[in-house]
């Protein structure tokens, strides 16, 4: 895979993504008794979830099940009406410095070049200019975009924009990466390519990740563990380990013997939990 070769370019084994291999502690997420109401309806109702360090968790569910709300609460972007979230033991009541978010619509600043978009959070958190530049370039190299640093987001395709979004998240060396339907806005083919690249990245640099999606295939492909959420009220209806080892590829997951049973199990859960049939595919 091209992206993996690109990723190995720096060559000196520097930790660009949070390193699973360095024995760093922290990076776990503990949610307990979470509630979130919009008006009279509970979008998230009494949710308990523990995500261990370096675990890749996908949250699937129909529209309106509160999966994005859950992610936004973890990110410190939505208030928590009741209950607590702790990331690496730190209480979440606003965005934490050790948490990076990848947004559905990329969230790139149109007036900043690719390089400056990636370097911004580093500079903003007080990283010196030279160091920030080095880390931004490393992160761009990881996603295979180191040669387009001086372009503006408007010049990029959707897939490239989301690679920049990913690079920006990884550049700050977070303990936790939260991804909110990051590939929902790109076409199906690009989506598969991005999944492939994400798998390659994660097999090199293990990292705690919560990935919200409404695609069952995407969830099984990427996750160590799939959380299935149901609607009205938003709650966890199933919690499934994905018994497919790493490194993986999109194709190897599809060929795996447990792929189809898993897929059917999740699909049944979703059908059972959602009376409204009109969710997006």
């Amino acid at each position: 895979m091209a992206s993996v070769e690109m990723a190995s370019a720096p060559g000196d084994g520097r930790r660009v993504v949070g390193a699973g291999e360095s024995g760093r502690s922290g990076g776990d997420i503990a949610c307990s008794g979470l509630y979130k109401w919009y008006g009279d309806s509970a979008v998230v109702a009494g949710l308990d979830l523990y995500v261990a360090q370096n675990q890749f968790v996908c949250v699937v569910g129909p529209s309106g099940c509160g999966k994005t709300t859950l992610l936004r609460m973890m990110a410190g972007l939505a208030s928590i009406d009741s209950g607590t979230i702790a990331i690496s033991g730190r209480q979440v009541n606003g965005p934490l410095p050790s948490v990076a978010v990848v947004f559905q619509h990329y969230g790139l600043f149109p007036w900043k070049t690719v390089f400056n978009n990636v370097a911004l959070p580093l500079r903003a958190s007080g990283v010196a200019k030279g160091e920030a530049a080095r880390r931004a370039n490393d992160a761009l190299t990881l996603v295979g975009l180191n040669d387009i640093g001086d372009q503006y987001p408007a010049q990029l395709s959707g897939g490239m924009k989301q690679r920049v979004g990913l690079a920006r998240a990884l550049a700050i060396q977070p303990e936790v990466v939260l991804l909110d339907e990051p590939f929902a806005a790109v076409d199906a083919q690009t989506r598969e390519i991005l999944q492939e690249e994400l798998l390659a990245l994660w097999s090199r640099y293990q990292q705690t990740a919560v990935f919200v999606t409404h695609s069952i295939d995407e969830a099984i492909t990427l996750a160590d563990r799939v959380i299935v959420m149901g609607t009205k009220p938003g709650r966890i209806v199933d919690d499934i380990e994905v018994p497919i080892g790493r490194p993986r590829s999109v194709a190897s997951v599809r060929r795996h013997e447990s792929y189809t049973p898993l897929r059917e199990r999740i699909w049944d859960q979703l059908r059972g939990s959602s009376t409204a049939g009109g969710e997006r595919g």
């Binding site: 295979g144 040669d147 598969e192």
Partner: peptide, 12 residues
């Protein structure tokens, strides 16, 4: 479709 080939269309 066969396996996706990164870099075909949108790669660096």
């Amino acid at each position: 479709t066969g396996a996706a080939r990164p870099g075909d269309r949108h790669g660096g």
